[in-house]
């Protein structure tokens, strides 16, 4: 039930934010289009936020939007464990592996480097807002060329807008409960990744496993 209420509020906020931004010019997809990577290795993100678990919370919401766009995405937790087992305990060290080495041991067409720039909630008297921001950079494993990059920020406020003071107090109480764990940031991470990869003209073009592959090549 709490989840439903949260989604309603969240959905309204996303909607109200969506209308008022002028879209930036469409990205140049020349490099991505000519290479057409089929498989993407997602490394655990670097973390520049103050939430120490942000990296892995963010990582756990990357696969779905990326795979649904039509790319093969290597199992993120398995990759993490495999690299740790091989002497690379942190995302920082994993981001230092040479592309030659990645090609040799895992063999993806492209590598996705992520940095979590911001991940956290800000509390006010009657509401709170959660901000998640990340930078993504997709690189051709054979040449090291950048294929695509983008930074996306999502801010979700849990204030309900209209309604009387009693309603607002209830809303504040609910959001305190939800936001008391990492979960608020996790939900916003999911939205942020969905936007990052799938927004038309800014996100990725469809990969070979999507039935719309090739329809967005203009």
């Amino acid at each position: 039930m709490l989840k439903v209420i949260y989604r309603v509020i969240l959905g309204s906020v996303v909607l109200s934010l969506a209308g008022c931004v002028t879209p930036p010019p469409k990205k140049d997809y020349t490099a991505l289009r000519s290479m057409q990577p089929k498989s993407i290795l997602v490394l655990p993100p670097l973390n520049q936020s103050i939430e120490e678990n942000a990296s892995y919370s963010y990582l756990s919401t990357v696969t779905k939007p990326l795979a649904e766009m039509g790319y093969y995405v290597y199992p993120v937790a398995v990759v993490d464990a495999f690299l740790k087992e091989n002497g690379l305990p942190t995302p920082g060290e994993m981001h230092q592996i040479s592309l030659d080495k990645i090609d040799q041991i895992i063999g993806p067409d492209a590598v996705l480097y992520l940095t979590v720039l911001n991940y956290g909630s800000k509390y006010q008297v009657l509401d709170s807002s959660t901000n998640v921001s990340a930078r993504a950079r997709l690189v051709d494993v054979k040449t090291g060329n950048e294929l695509w990059s983008r930074t996306v920020t999502t801010v979700q406020s849990s204030s309900s807008g209209g309604g009387g003071i009693a309603e607002m107090l209830v809303a504040a109480a609910i959001s305190q409960v939800i936001n008391s764990s990492m979960d608020a940031g996790h939900g916003v991470s999911r939205t942020n990744n969905f936007r990052l990869f799938t927004e038309s003209g800014q996100g990725l073009i469809y990969g070979h496993r999507n039935e719309k592959f090739g329809t967005d090549l203009n």
């Binding site: 989604r7 309603v8 509020i9 969240l10 959905g11 996303v14 909607l15 969506a18 969905f194």
Partner: peptide, 8 residues
């Protein structure tokens, strides 16, 4: 809100 949340 529900409709948008469903999409997201």
């Amino acid at each position: 809100g529900l409709a948008v949340a469903a999409i997201f």
